[in-house]
Design a protein around this nucleic acid. Structure first.
Lengths: 193, 193
DNA sequence: TTACATAATCTAGCAACGCTAGATATGATG
DNA sequence: CATCATATCTAGCGTTGCTAGATTATGTAA
């Protein structure tokens, strides 16, 4: 069977182009943010990068904030996958430790992405049914850790997430010296094991 | 003895006026931020509130960021005092619990101030000798909790702060439902007691 | 192929922002 | 009163997010 015929073909091509351009914008935003900070991610700069005029960006995302939200959503997706991988591939040692390390490594290696997810983006609940699937996926990876282990896995998961987020954020904003990071993680794992 | 004489009098009066106006600006910034969000704290808006032109603000703080930093510094001062009060006045129950509750109540009751302290302001290390005294004061209140109780009070203090900050931040940004807040604190205190 | 209609894209500009140079007013001092 | 420094303001620059209206490209049909 060859390519589909009829007028659908061109609609499909247009859709592909649209998605590709959308991905381009997000990629450009992430690159600039990671290299030069989010304050340099302006609408004009983004439209320069993709060689289109500004209104094209608004057709895709509605606002600058929409771009940040899209980046944040990608971030939650990737974080969820990273945590899942860590949880499933662990051989020796505790899964709690593996997930904690994966979380903090994610936050440390992509600080601008993490910033978009937690400091810049609009706030949507984690566990709620109304939450985007990306957020529920990520949270479920942590929930899985304490399922059955505790009388109240939900509360313990939230607490574990909060601790990781606090460490990540205070490290990202240079409040904590990196020097003691290993000890911090060890102490954290000790508390939650 | 009456009022001091000589030309010092007017210099002193000018200094008082200056400090009063500075306090006015900070107060206005805090009020607007708490009521309408930090995005509404513009230089023009602030100069309107104090009935002076914009350059006056720059004479005091150098930049808009300077205003936010000044607010954040006030915030650390007040947080330190609140934690100290909680730590010293506790009668029954653990001091850890009292401090945790004081911290979270502070963050919940003044979300814009907390945002200035941790999300908007420039980042300065907590424990470092180069840190502003306000930060060291606040951190020392937590350090005090674990002094002698643990083999490594510094790491444990950082971890405790991180957990509190994570809870506060994820609550402020509506990631956590307020419903389970009490349970979260109970679980947290259980881990650190 | 040509004419048309729809969709895609751009040009140009608005209002608001942070910030500052240069003009003006104020007030203490001889 | 005249002087001079200090305090304050006016006016405007460059940049931002965003949008209305003009313009070009593109698929459809005669």
């Amino acid at each position: 069977m060859g390519a589909p015929q009829g007028p659908n073909r061109i609609a499909e091509r247009k859709l592909r182009d649209k998605q590709a351009r959308r991905a381009n914008i997000i990629r450009a935003a992430r690159r600039i943010a990671e290299l030069e900070g989010w304050s340099n991610v302006t609408v004009r700069r983004l439209s320069d990068e993709i060689s289109y005029s500004q209104p094209v960006l608004y057709a895709h995302f509605g606002s600058r904030e929409g771009v940040v939200t899209a980046v944040a959503t990608e971030g939650f997706q990737e974080l969820g996958l990273a945590l899942e991988k860590a949880r499933k591939r662990v051989k020796r040692g505790s899964t709690v430790e593996a997930v904690a390390n994966a979380y903090l490594e994610f936050a440390a290696s992509l600080p601008a992405l993490y910033e978009a997810m937690f400091s810049l983006s609009v706030s949507v609940p984690f566990g709620d049914a109304a939450s985007p699937s990306e957020l529920r996926l990520a949270f479920s990876q942590i929930l899985e850790l304490f399922q059955g282990q505790s009388s109240n896995p939900e509360v313990l998961s939230e607490l574990f997430w909060a601790s990781l987020h606090g460490i990540a954020e205070l490290t990202r904003t240079k409040r904590f010296p990196l020097r003691r990071q290993k000890e911090r993680v060890r102490a954290l794992v000790g508390l939650f094991r």
